[in-house]
Amino acid sequence: MPSTPYLIAVLSIVFTITLALRAVPFAVLGRLRDSAVVRRLAVWMPVGILAILAVTALHGTITKDSHGTWYALLAVAATVVVHLAFRRRTILSVGAGTTLYVVLLNSL
């Protein structure tokens, strides 16, 4: 298990950087607002970052149980279908996808 000082160091780093990232823009808002690069990145980034997180999470799941690769892909597809079919209810879609994966992985 990692040592407590290490964990506390991580926590303080996380706290400082996260708060700074949220606070600094308010201080320099005027200058940033005029930058075309910043405005474009603001529009372009969120979808991509979320997609990257989804793929790395999927990759992690597959690496952990490689025989479940097809179940994982199937469960992702099910999550998407449920999400689009039932008007984007996050808890329902995530629950359905996860249940399908857990059941497939443990019973087959």
Binding site: A54, A57, T98
Partner: peptide, 19 residues
Amino acid sequence: VKGLEFALCALFTVLTLDA
């Protein structure tokens, strides 16, 4: 529970879709 970590993947998938 084996496979429960898939919830994370499902959540990000849904958020991507919404975005």
